[in-house]
Design a protein around this nucleic acid. Structure first.
Length: 932
RNA sequence: GCUGGAGUGGUGGAAUUGGUAUACACGUACGACUCAAAAUCGUAUGGCGCAAGCCUUGAGGGUUCAAGUCCCUCCUCCAGCACCA
């Protein structure tokens, strides 16, 4: 009779006992340490759904595993509770944000505790606790003292919905606010800004040393957006100089105009020189008033205005070129001005086409490697279009079985178009006229088999149009060489794509500039240099500077809202902004009557005069407090450090504890990881420079968490009414089942839909574990002992790699086996310990049921015997001519001859060995392949 | 468009890194127990075929004794970035 499996009977009991015995309490010790960290939650009013605990279950298993393998484990939990959502929630429900946060935290904590997590609650932190944000403010003061926090009056993003300034990162890609969806405007305001850009290079470089998923690293690189290039100065006719940033200084000779962003200061400065000022003014107003969305809508259609009366000089060749303003150039990136090279940039090309600006090729695409003793040649290629039949005439060579354009070398004084028309007439007999070029000149290097020589060819393709429908007679010699063939557009594309690698036929229908690297041409003394060489050489010649620029903006750090850390600054008329002295921290967030946003660009704190008015710490005169608060990301940018030493009121973290615990060994999270990780890494590196932390990176290893979708495949949300509450699942099947199921669903990083049916599998597994003691036998047989040790190895390896699904599957296989074969009590105890991190309640219940009086979670994790995980006899597949025909069970040390002999005894194999054995591939313990 | 990642049964997914493809679980079918149902247990379960056998890891080529795994071309999906010079 199966023992009843009623998790409700014992889960609560053991949770209480663990808390009472302080089982999961952590202190620094002689043991090796492991710091396992979850991205701490934002305690929203909605509570948890089953997707939220997934990461916490994983870290719980990992930390229990580490504890049982002799590590001192730090696995803490806390609350990220400042910020807009909490405040908006509070305003909506007409409660004080603090009250709302307290309530939400209590709810979250209760929901977490039901799942039996091993958090050390003595280390709980809350970012809204003055004892905590004292140190957030302290970090800000240090940033300020080092000149890394400064005031700026640049126009910034303003969200009319949230009534606050936002960082660039707070916007969705369509220019709306990520919190409320309002369209974000630009507003000039006083802001605190952090110089995150100063750390961009270090954040980029140190990425390589981290064990993080590639896509997260890539997202970080993207975000920082470093690009290498040069700054080059252009002289204007007004004697001013415009500095442009370009990644392609090798194309400088191809610059045919300059573009300034509409906000560029030189435009206003040279107002008097601009003869079409009204038009210019109108354009500037139009583009600055354009909502971000409109600006994105017309990404294809370029707009702009020429600055009449002003020209610039190309420093490479002293050519005079026009200057435009256009909003495809962003004021906030690079220098807010560009040199336009329409021949080699898609955007400049589109703009130049629209405004009829010359397009000058200065780089040739190169096919093949330069060959020794190559004979140079210049030639034109032609494809002939017949508008009547809508077909294209090309030549077909029987000798090479290939289609090709009409082709011939340039003769004296000819250009490509003339050659194309002449050669086409000679070779095909058709009279044609030149329509346009198809792409630029290209350079090809190849071996010419017909002439037995190496060729270095410069060529350009032409589109011709037929004049007479009927061809004239062609010489017999030409007829032998090639045959004219008419192809439809589709045929042309498919034949050329298949047969020719050096003609990009799609250029015929979709003309676009060549934007790749190649060899430079039309550039005086730099001709024939590679793009790479020319970049440096040309930059040097014109006195430019090789440099790098970044996409990442400095971090707009102030919010005009109530619910955040007050920025610890005092504004004094005489001394300017002064940091609040460290002994006066924290600057406590004062109580206010109205914490709704004022909408005036000032925080609600500005209304509390007796808080705002203070004295200057430097000169003692009357001064005013800064009333802006910090963004939500502030508190989460360093919280992991506080867990190491959360009661310290002398320092953010003590040196000893930091040195023991840092860095975070495994960090687990998903969602807006990229933002948080950028900010946290920035602060960490700053704290490293201050000597507060001893590691250059905060998070050694990052495991990305895949979400759980609702059963309908959509995101779980109130809106769809498809939320599954973990409390309900625990009531239904118990916490252990929920834990095992979520880990068994699939690979940890995958996003997978919840399945109520699938839950049953986990439940059945635990029921079978619960009934295992019925299968006790007295003497262990060797086979099941081996299986146990293989299972131990698999589970250990898999937990270490966060492959919980396969770890559980291995344990299921083991249970399936011993239900048939039986197991000894020793094996049973080993298995319980193996399962303990996954199902802490059930294993504890069964452990105590065996008569033990100390928690299973304080036991040592099972270790496997090396000799028992390697089989000395295995079943391997036997192939004949690479196809599996049967299998043999054979000693791993058996010789090839023994293996073949054994294989021949198997009928299904023998029947396929019909001839002489030509070759045998035998890999012991892997495969036997007989080739006949 | 660019970058990164991935395509395996009806479903979630395994596969010692080039060596018996489809482990484990769900679902389904049949059987046992039951007056009955649920639960539980047992058997079967990639496709075609009575069978021997043949086919099968998004599609098509290639390398190899051997390819889900490596190489080339293409298609699809997910994620991030997106006028970033």
């Amino acid at each position: 009779m199966n023992k009843k499996f009623n998790p409700q009977d014992f889960e609560k009991k053991w949770q209480a006992k663990w808390a009472e015995d302080n089982v999961y309490h952590t202190t620094e010790s002689k043991k090796p340490k492991t710091f396992v960290l979850d991205m701490f939650p934002y305690p929203s009013g909605e509570g948890l759904h089953v997707g939220h605990p997934k990461g916490y279950i994983a870290t719980d298993i990992y930390s229990r595993f580490k504890r049982m393998t002799g590590h001192e484990v730090l696995h803490p939990m806390g609350w990220d509770a400042f910020g807009l959502p909490a405040e908006n929630f509070a305003i909506k429900h007409k409660v004080h944000p603090r009250v709302a946060v307290e309530k939400n935290v209590a709810r979250f904590k209760e929901q977490l505790q039901v799942l039996g997590f091993d958090y050390d609650w003595e280390r709980e932190i809350n970012t809204t606790d003055p004892e905590y944000y004292k140190w957030t403010q302290w970090i800000f003061v240090q940033l300020f003292k080092k000149g890394l926090a400064y005031e700026s009056h640049e126009p910034i993003n303003w969200c009319p919905g949230c009534q606050t300034g936002l960082a660039n990162e707070d916007l969705e890609s369509d220019g709306t606010c990520e919190r409320c969806g309002s369209l974000v405007e630009k507003r000039p305001m006083r802001q605190w800004v952090l110089k995150i850009r100063s750390y961009a290079d270090r954040m980029l470089e140190d990425l390589d040393s981290l064990k993080w998923p590639e896509h997260i690293k890539e997202a970080q690189r993207n975000w920082i957006g470093r690009s290498e290039g040069a700054e080059i100065d252009f002289k204007l006719s007004t004697k001013d100089r415009v500095t442009v940033f370009t990644t392609r200084p090798d194309t400088l000779f191809g610059v045919t105009y300059l573009v300034l962003a509409p906000e560029h200061p030189l435009i206003q400065k040279n107002k008097s020189q601009v003869s079409n000022w009204d038009e210019v003014m109108q354009y500037i107003e139009l583009s600055t008033n354009k909502k971000e969305q409109d600006r994105l809508d017309d990404t294809k259609e370029k707009t702009g205005v020429k600055l009449e009366g002003i020209t610039a000089t190309n420093p490479a060749n002293n050519e005079e070129i026009p200057v435009y303003i256009a909003d495809y150039v962003l004021a906030s990136y690079g220098t807010g001005a560009i040199m336009a090279v329409p021949a080699h940039d898609e955007r400049d090309y589109a703009f130049a086409e629209k405004f009829n600006i010359p397009i000058k090729q200065v780089v040739r695409k190169v096919f093949g490697e330069t060959l020794p003793n190559a004979i140079p040649r210049v030639a034109a290629g032609a494809i002939v279009y017949n508008p009547k039949t809508e077909k294209y005439l090309v030549s077909f060579s029987h000798e090479f079985n290939k289609h090709s354009p009409w082709f011939g070398g340039l003769e004296d004084g000819e250009d490509f178009s003339e050659t194309a028309v002449r050669e086409t007439l000679e070779e095909s007999g058709y009279k044609t006229k030149f329509i346009r070029y198809i792409g630029d000149e290209v350079e090809s290097h190849f071996y010419h088999p017909g002439k037995d020589l190496n060729r270095s060819l410069i060529s350009r393709m032409c589109l011709l149009e037929i004049i007479d429908q009927e061809p004239i007679t062609v010489s017999e010699e030409e007829k032998k060489k090639q045959e004219p063939v008419w192809l439809t557009k589709e045929e042309l594309v498919s034949k050329f794509t298949e047969e020719r690698d050096s003609y990009d036929v799609s250029m015929l229908f979709d003309p676009r500039p060549f934007t790749g690297m190649g060899n430079v041409c039309n550039s005086d003394e730099f001709d024939d240099l590679s793009s790479k060489e020319a970049k440096v050489a040309i930059t040097e010649k014109v006195g430019g500077r090789m440099t790098a620029t970044y996409k990442i903006r400095d971090w707009v750090f102030s919010r005009q809202r109530y619910w955040g850390e007050p920025i610890p600054i005092i504004h004094c008329e005489k001394c300017g902004p002064v940091a609040v002295p460290e002994d006066q921290l924290p600057v406590v967030l004062p109580e206010v009557e109205h914490y709704e946003p004022t909408g005036t660009g000032e925080s609600p704190l500005a209304n509390i005069t007796d808080w705002v008015n203070t004295t200057c710490p430097e000169c003692g005169e009357g001064a005013k407090r800064e009333t802006n608060t910090m963004p939500q990301w502030a508190g989460s940018s360093w919280y992991y450090l506080r867990f190491m030493d959360n009661h310290n009121n002398q320092a953010l973290v003590s040196k000893e504890k930091e040195q023991y615990w840092a860095p975070v060994d495994v960090y687990v999270g998903g969602d807006h990881a990229v933002r948080h990780l950028i900010y946290a890494r920035f602060w960490h590196k700053f704290l490293y420079d201050l000597g507060v932390v001893s590691t250059i990176e905060p998070f050694q290893r990052l495991e990305f968490l895949g979400f759980i979708l609702a059963e309908d495949g959509r995101k779980m949300s109130k809106r769809w009414g498809n939320i599954i509450n973990p409390d309900d699942i625990v009531k239904l099947v118990g916490a252990d089942t929920l834990r095992v199921y979520e880990m068994f669903m699939g690979p940890f990083e995958n996003t997978i839909a919840w399945s109520q049916d699938g839950l049953v599998g986990a439940r059945r597994f635990l029921e079978r574990v619960n009934g295992l003691s019925e299968h006790f036998i007295d003497n262990e047989n060797e086979l099941s002992e081996r299986q146990l040790h293989k299972t131990i190895k698999k589970v250990c390896d898999d937990i270490e790699e966060f492959k919980f699904n396969t770890a559980i599957s291995a344990m299921m296989v083991y249970v399936n086996t011993v239900e048939k074969e039986g197991l000894t009590q020793t094996a049973y105890e080993t298995f319980l310990k193996l399962l303990a991190p996954f199902a802490p309640h059930l294993t504890e219940e069964l452990w105590y049921g065996l008569g033990y009086t100390k928690s299973i979670h304080l036991e040592s994790y099972p270790k496997y015997e090396q000799t028992l995980v390697v089989d000395n006899e295995v079943t391997i597949g036997v192939q004949v001519n690479g196809r599996v025909r049967g299998n043999i069970t054979i000693s791993t040390s058996a010789s090839e001859d023994e293996a073949i002999a054994l294989a021949k005894t198997v009928t299904s194999i023998k029947s396929h060995i019909t001839g002489n054995i030509k070759k045998v591939i035998y890999k012991p313990a892997k495969i036997l392949n007989i080739v006949i």
